[in-house]
């Protein structure tokens, strides 16, 4: 329990990577978890099928913000067609800690927003596991 806030999580929380906004995003999306008030926005810049830049912004707990920072590092420089493969387990692996169902939603907010932005970019429908109204999270393409 004591190493819940591992060094890597606190590092990303205190020194967020890719935080802020892009001047000319190719795609953008937002997500809000009304249960805890976590808010997250993701902007992508894509050239020739590759994510050349990414920014995220928002407010929330250390888990949601650190997960977003970690995810931004993973996404940057990757071809768009590889991003469809990124899933919940990748985020959990990056965080490296067990999460209760409530905190799991915090961790998954950023990857969900990324999926919405990708769906906007490619015109592909949002994968059903990210489109479950029962999880309470509200998605919005920008």
């Amino acid at each position: 329990m004591d190493d819940f806030y591992r060094e890597n999580i606190l590092d990303h929380y205190n020194n967020p990577r890719n935080h802020g906004h892009l001047d000319h995003p190719s795609a953008a999306a937002e997500g809000v978890n009304p249960l805890c008030g976590d808010e997250l926005a993701v902007e992508l810049e894509v050239h020739d099928g590759v994510v050349t830049d990414i920014r995220y912004s928002g407010r929330g707990c250390a888990i949601s913000q650190a997960a977003a920072s970690m995810l931004s590092d993973v996404v940057k420089g990757k071809p768009v067609d590889q991003l469809a493969q990124i899933g919940k387990e990748d985020v959990l692996e990056e965080l490296g800690i067990p999460l209760s169902p409530i905190r799991l939603k915090c961790a998954m907010l950023s990857v969900g927003v990324l999926k919405v932005a990708l769906s906007e970019l490619t015109g592909e429908p949002l994968p059903p596991e990210w489109n479950d109204p029962s999880d309470g999270i509200e998605w919005k393409s920008a």
Binding site: M1, F4, Y5, G37, R59, G60, C61, R103, C106
Partner: peptide, 22 residues
């Protein structure tokens, strides 16, 4: 500026139960 969920999580590690949220 620590989010109350993080406050509550750290307190929980010390056996302290508090509520965090709205």
């Amino acid at each position: 500026k620590v989010h109350p969920h993080d406050v509550a999580q750290v307190l929980d590690s010390e056996g302290i139960a508090v509520r965090a949220g709205h």
